[in-house]
């Protein structure tokens, strides 16, 4: 139990209350979005989670960061369980940050980039850089430093999301995620809402940040081309189950499962056409 560093998901099952069977009064038929999935992300490792829409990828991410409660299974980080945390123990999740898909709605439209970023420090004063809580100038310096790490100019600090481009917003989100020095970064389709050219830049940024801070990553995506560029290992999901998990090279050259082969050939078709 304690030997495992990094993220360890064991037999994770998540069910949503489904629609009611018969109109207003029927019983709800629960939807099992994730069914007994076991998945590890070792330190320094990037695991890509692929699979068709609705296969339960985002649900796994949500369970890991505590947005949904699993109905069975366990989630541990460095050997400590992340489930059933009391509100005051939420700091246990501080090691894990998440980047969302829609760059704009991930930032509060009423707050400046600086306010969004420094909110993380207000929530976790213990890991905030020296003096950012009280000293305005230090806080600004720390924000500017983070912005520089994601390739943004200092003047972005005072801007609201509406005054930023999609790519800039996503960079601010990344800066905010880095504010607490996490060890695992979960990216749920973090680039798929962006322009193709911007996608490449943000992807590059994510990779360079990962190298610089030796982060582990859970990278959720539809795009198998991206997987090959960033991931060490790939986990393939279908209908809430994990069908195959292998390192990138093996998976692309010798897929074991029929469904994986289907996915790959579909991706190749797209490549040929474009």
């Amino acid at each position: 139990m304690t030997d495992a560093a990094g993220l360890r998901i064991t037999d994770l099952t998540v069910t949503y209350p489904g629609p009611r069977a018969a109109g207003l009064v029927g019983r709800r038929t629960p939807i099992t979005a994730v069914d007994a999935v076991s998945l590890d992300v070792a330190p320094d490792e990037t695991v890509a989670l692929v699979g068709e829409s609705g296969s339960g990828k985002s649900t796994i991410a949500r369970a890991v960061v505590g947005l949904v409660a699993p109905s069975a299974g366990s989630i541990e980080f460095d050997g400590a369980s992340l489930l059933n945390l009391r509100p005051r123990d939420q700091w246990a999740r501080r090691n894990i940050a998440m980047i969302f898909q829609d760059p704009r709605s991930a930032l509060n439209p009423r707050l400046s980039a600086a306010a969004s970023i420094s909110e993380a420090w207000e929530a976790h004063p213990d890991v905030a850089p020296e003096g950012v809580r009280r000293d305005q100038r230090r806080r600004r310096a720390a924000v500017v430093d983070l912005l520089a790490q994601v390739g943004l100019d200092p003047d972005v600090a005072g801007k609201r999301p509406t005054a930023l481009s999609g790519g800039q917003c996503q960079r601010v989100s990344i800066a905010r995620a880095l504010a607490l020095s996490p060890r695992l970064l979960i990216c749920d389709e973090a680039v798929s809402a962006l322009d193709v050219s911007v996608q490449a830049q943000v992807l590059k940024l994510l990779v360079s940040v990962r190298e610089a801070r030796s982060l582990s990553m859970l990278f959720i995506t539809h795009d198998l081309g991206v997987v090959r560029q960033v991931a060490d290992r790939v986990a393939v999901m279908r209908h809430g189950e994990l069908v195959e998990s292998a390192d990138v090279h093996t998976l692309f050259t010798a897929p074991q499962h029929d469904y994986t082969r289907e996915l790959l050939s579909a991706a190749v078709d797209l490549d040929v056409r474009s």
């Binding site: 960061v65 505590g66 947005l67 509100p87 939420q90 700091w91 999740r93 501080r94 894990i96 940050a97 998440m98 969302f100 898909q101 829609d102 709605s105 991930a106 930032l107 509060n108 439209p109 707050l111 969004s116 909110e119 993380a120 207000e122 929530a123 976790h124 989100s173 905010r176 607490l180």
Partner: peptide, 19 residues
């Protein structure tokens, strides 16, 4: 998503509501 990401960051409920 901005509420969710605040939740993920561990921002307290009262603060999430207020902000």
């Amino acid at each position: 998503d901005w509420v969710k990401s605040a939740t993920v960051m561990g921002v307290r409920r009262r603060r999430i509501i207020a902000r």
